[in-house]
């Protein structure tokens, strides 16, 4: 009869194992908590006075080519002299620089929307920050999965 070799696991080994798992989890957490430049920039612009809102930001869920990602937004505003959107910022948290574009609107436009194309280097969040004429800020974000990055290199 063939003798099977038993692997003995002592209590001490188990403790080592758990310790290892715990520390890996801890360190990976640290690695993930890198500073989000886009959020930092949003705080800088809005002086930490921003509300999450459901502005309409249209980005694809999956972008096959990060070189040309169509972005459009539409903000519901009457665009009168009393109530209008002054500036809209577009930011991305995974690109080498968080700023993407700044749109300065005027009441002559009648609506607050625009479309452009942007580069995305990897899967990341795209942020939209709107500044109203009364000094209020609103933001929204949307995640885009990128198959091929678009920032060269």
């Amino acid at each position: 009869m063939k003798r099977q070799k038993m692997i003995m696991i002592s209590r001490r080994d188990v403790m080592y194992l758990f310790g290892g798992v715990a520390s890996t989890a801890l360190f990976s957490n640290y690695a993930l908590a890198n500073p989000n430049l886009a959020l930092k920039r949003i705080k800088e612009i809005s002086k930490n006075n921003v509300e999450e809102s459901d502005l309409f930001l249209d980005v694809p869920e999956i972008a096959e080519n990060g070189n040309q990602v169509k972005v459009s937004f539409d903000i519901d505003s009457p665009m009168t002299n009393e109530d209008f959107v002054k500036t809209v910022y577009l930011l991305a948290d995974g690109n080498p620089a968080p700023n993407v574009a700044k749109f300065s609107f005027s009441t002559d436009m009648g609506a607050c929307s625009a479309t452009t194309r942007m580069r995305l280097s990897k899967t990341q969040n795209v942020y939209l920050l709107a500044e109203y004429n009364n000094g209020k800020f609103a933001m929204t974000k949307s995640k885009v999965k990128v198959t091929i990055g678009g920032c060269g290199g």
Binding site: N67, Q68, P96, V100, A101, K102, F103, G110, R119
Partner: peptide, 25 residues
């Protein structure tokens, strides 16, 4: 009269495409 300004950063794609509304008067 100035109606619209956009500041572009390097994150904007090659051959920048920009579309925006305007209320005709």
């Amino acid at each position: 009269k100035q109606v619209f300004v956009m500041d572009l950063e390097p994150s904007i794609s090659t051959n920048p495409y920009i579309a925006f509304p305007y209320k005709a008067k």
